[in-house]
Design a protein around this nucleic acid. Structure first.
Length: 789
DNA sequence: AATATAAAATGA
DNA sequence: CATTTTATATTA
């Protein structure tokens, strides 16, 4: 019987294409094959094979490619991802299968050298130094040998020509050395840590393994799928998303025991005996969460299975890798966007072969071809960096929960400041919850005190209030480190001419230009537009009347330098002069105590630990509280809790001072009292009272109008949704100003649907049926289905 | 994504 | 009307 294979191609195609399987070729699901597509050849993955006559008009599969096939859980993850994010299946596949890089194919053989045992014909001082180093007979890289001997490369080359050194092809170093789960640890776990670790380890035996997953479970893998009414929201409907593949247990309607009708949204929900989909590991800053989940990683390795630790890219620091090495004896294999070429391919191959047991990586590591995944840890689970906002829109934390269920392995979400989603999920019993309420080693959390800026005013033109100045003065006098936190890059967020009142604005974005004094430029933080800072006002021509309004970190540095002239001050922000490598070095230097006062943006709140830091001064806690973002309060609270938590993690106790104009604001009050729980309760209630779900499946609908004149003719550049289509709830704003972004007017609003429909095509159809706007306006819709509220 | 085809703009 | 640029459709 001839065979037909359904091949999914890693392109923006939503359906698999059928190809004839040539006689003599055996294919099974997941195999990677080469296929003709139009006039060219590409690769694809077998998504299904059927015994049937091809009908004669199908093109044949060209051949199989000798790489590890995609495992069933990974294929199901692709299906799930595509459906959940409304992305074409092929695009989802492209996350897990990248076309083989031609550069990576050609193996680069590194040449090593070692002593040939005979002396140099004409010995020189430099040559002797090299031979002395090489005398041990070890093989070294050429440059490594030259560096060790303190000579230049040409000396080594000369000795090779001379015959005193012999060359040897280096075996490529392994992508990762095996971590040792029983490596002697330097610091014993605290009682609380040991207890938490034991709970995590117990989870290895309670997760439901993959083959048993069935019934309502299948549909209910969803992670962010709870509305205010607590009903499932993301149950896709068959008619909106016709099934293409013969057997896909994740899709409703294909269950052996009755299909879609049995998929009650109530079934299985809220059952306390149900196995949790993930475990939230919540530990205050300094509680040693990492050490706790390292124990789960160790247990996973002991069981011979693979572990994946996801981190936001910025948190993948040398500091973290060293902590890993202190526990496991070696640094882990790492995966992030910067890893390319051969290294990337070899790591993939190592993971697929099961040789690499632990991978620490950024969100894209989620799609690595693990053969036997036994644990996923999502560190800093609240981080918004887990959201991919271009291409396929997905949230890596949530997809980690999905992959964990598909692989039948525990998923640990770790954070000091968990997201609202995870809190709600723990409240509802969907996620387990382990709490570490106290710091490791008996250290205390920093005392947080507010400075009411209405009472303690800074001097004119200054931004540090007297109590803040006094606290910094005392800390540095005692030889301690102080951090002044202000989440604003540059010198001043707004520049105006005091002669004519002209405000410098971005020509693309309707935002104010931020002065960067070091660079002598005005910069738009929205689109990156930069112009030289003018000598005279561009509007009225007056000299010396450009006035900076408000502070940025550069301006604070200026003030601090005047107040503390003999102290070492450093400014750390993402636009650090000298690039990321220099920035990394500076962060290390600060951690080593080579600095007295750090002035930083949110960059310093994440990833790095500063053991000498005892004082954190938040210069403006109110930033971000008034923005239109519905998550503003949550984000601000998390950021402030993270940054104040930097203090006092070393020997000496820490404290934090918070400058604010609204000490009674719920966010500030919660921060001061340390009552995070209550804050989140209130936040969740507030959202429900406002008719918003605590979170849900949302789409941001972006309407772009092509022409400025037309947009402005339409009622003062305001756009509105007069009549949303049924099934779509507009969360707001119903009417909003058009923002000019890269030459196009855009209008962004949040919509929500509780139906399993394809939001994008649904809205397109609705738009096509709506009355057309006058003039030459082109309206397009772009949907971002992963913008969780 | 790569390629084919259609449509629009350019130019003598 | 041929040539070049740009937008849109197709790939099994």
């Amino acid at each position: 019987m001839p065979q037909v294979a359904d091949i999914l191609i890693p392109l923006a195609l939503d359906t698999a294409y059928s190809y004839a399987v040539p006689t003599g070729l055996t294919l099974k699901d997941g195999d990677v094959v080469q296929i003709p597509l139009g006039p060219r050849e590409t690769i694809g993955v077998v998504w299904g094979v059927e015994d049937r006559a091809s009908g004669g008009n199908l093109r044949p599969v060209s051949g199989a490619i000798e790489v590890a096939p995609l495992s069933e859980p990974l294929r199901r993850l692709v299906d799930w991802l595509a459906r959940y994010t409304l992305a074409p299946k092929g695009s989802a596949l492209a996350m897990a299968l990248r076309l083989p890089d031609e550069n990576a194919r050609t193996e680069i053989v590194r040449i090593g050298v070692r002593s040939a045992g005979k002396p140099a014909s004409r010995p020189t001082k430099a040559r002797e130094k090299v031979l002395a180093v090489a005398a041990d007979g070890e093989v070294r890289g050429k440059s490594a040998l030259a560096k060790e001997a303190g000579v230049s490369l040409s000396v080594v080359d000369g000795l090779i020509d001379d015959g005193a050194l012999e060359t040897i092809a280096l075996v490529p170093e392994p992508v990762a050395l095996p971590p040792d789960p029983d490596f002697p640890r330097q610091m014993p776990l605290s009682e609380a840590q040991a207890e938490a670790a034991a709970k995590l380890i117990a989870a290895f035996d309670t997760v439901s393994p993959f083959p048993q997953m069935q019934g309502e479970d299948r549909d209910d893998l969803a992670v962010g799928a709870v509305s205010s009414k607590g009903e499932a929201e993301d149950r896709p409907q068959d008619e909106a998303h016709p099934r293409t593949f013969p057997h896909d247990p994740l899709l409703p309607g294909s269950a052996p025991n009755g299909g879609g009708a049995a998929l009650s949204s109530q079934a299985g929900r809220g059952d306390s005996h149900e196995v949790p989909r993930a475990i939230l590991l919540e530990g205050v800053t300094g509680s040693g969460k990492t050490e706790v989940y390292f124990e789960a990683v160790a247990e996973c390795v002991r069981r011979g299975r693979q572990a994946l630790v996801l981190m936001p890219e910025i948190a993948l620091t040398a500091q973290f890798l060293d902590r890993f090495a202190a526990r496991f004896g070696v640094r882990p294999a790492t995966w992030h966007s910067g890893i390319g070429g051969r290294r990337r391919e070899r790591l993939r191959a190592g993971v697929a072969a099961g040789e690499v047991s632990v991978v620490v990586g950024a969100r894209s590591a989620l799609f690595l071809p693990f053969t036997d995944l036994g644990l996923i840890v999502v560190d800093e689970e609240h981080e918004s960096a887990y959201k991919q906002e271009d291409g396929v829109h997905y949230h890596a934390r949530d997809m980690a929960v999905v992959r964990g269920r598909l692989e039948g392995c525990p998923v640990v979400l770790a954070s000091a400041t968990p997201s609202i989603e995870s809190r709600v999920n723990t409240q509802r019993g969907r996620y387990g919850h382990i709490v570490l309420p106290e710091r490791f080693g008996g250290r205390r959390l920093p005392d947080i005190t507010a400075i009411d800026m209405r009472l303690d005013k800074p001097e004119r033109g200054r931004f540090l209030s007297p109590p803040m100045v006094a606290a910094v003065k005392k800390a540095v006098a005692d030889g301690e480190q102080a951090l002044l936190f202000l989440n604003r890059r540059g010198y001043a967020p707004l520049t105006l001419c005091s002669a004519c009142g002209h405000r410098y604005q971005c020509r693309n974005c309707s935002t104010w230009l931020v002065e960067h004094r070091f660079r002598r430029a005005l910069v738009c933080h929205h689109c990156g537009y930069t112009e030289r800072k003018p000598e005279a006002c561009v509007e009225c021509g007056t000299f010396d009347h450009l006035t900076p309004c408000g502070p940025g970190v550069e301006r604070i540095a200026e003030e601090a330098a005047e107040l503390f002239p003999d102290k070492r001050i450093i400014v750390l922000s993402s636009d650090f002069p000298g690039g990321t490598e220099r920035l990394r070095q500076e962060l290390e230097a600060v951690a080593a105590g080579e600095c007295d006062i750090v002035i930083g943006t949110q960059l310093v709140a994440k990833g790095h630990n500063f053991p000498y830091l005892t004082l954190v001064g938040v210069l403006d806690a109110d930033i971000g509280l008034t923005s239109g973002d519905p998550r503003a309060a949550e984000r601000t609270f998390q950021l402030l809790q993270q940054v104040t938590g930097r203090a006092g993690r070393g020997e000496r106790p820490g404290r934090a001072l918070v400058q604010t104009y609204q000490p009674d604001h719920p966010v500030i009050a919660a921060l001061l009292s340390g009552e995070a729980e209550r804050f989140y309760e209130e936040e969740i209630h507030a959202r429900e009272a406002a008719g918003l779900p605590p979170f849900g499946r949302l789409a941001a609908l972006i309407v772009s109008a092509a022409q400025r004149e037309v947009a402005e003719a339409h009622g003062q550049a305001m756009a509105r949704v007069a009549d949303p289509p049924p099934g779509i709830m507009v969360l707001g704003p119903a009417e909003a100003p058009l923002a000019l972004v890269r030459g196009r007017y855009r209008f962004r609003l949040l919509v929500k649907t509780d139906r399993g429909i394809d939001i994008q095509s649904y809205l397109r159809d609705w738009l096509a049926r709506s009355p057309k706007p006058r003039g030459n306006t082109k309206v397009t819709i772009d949907v971002d289905p992963q913008s969780f509220l």
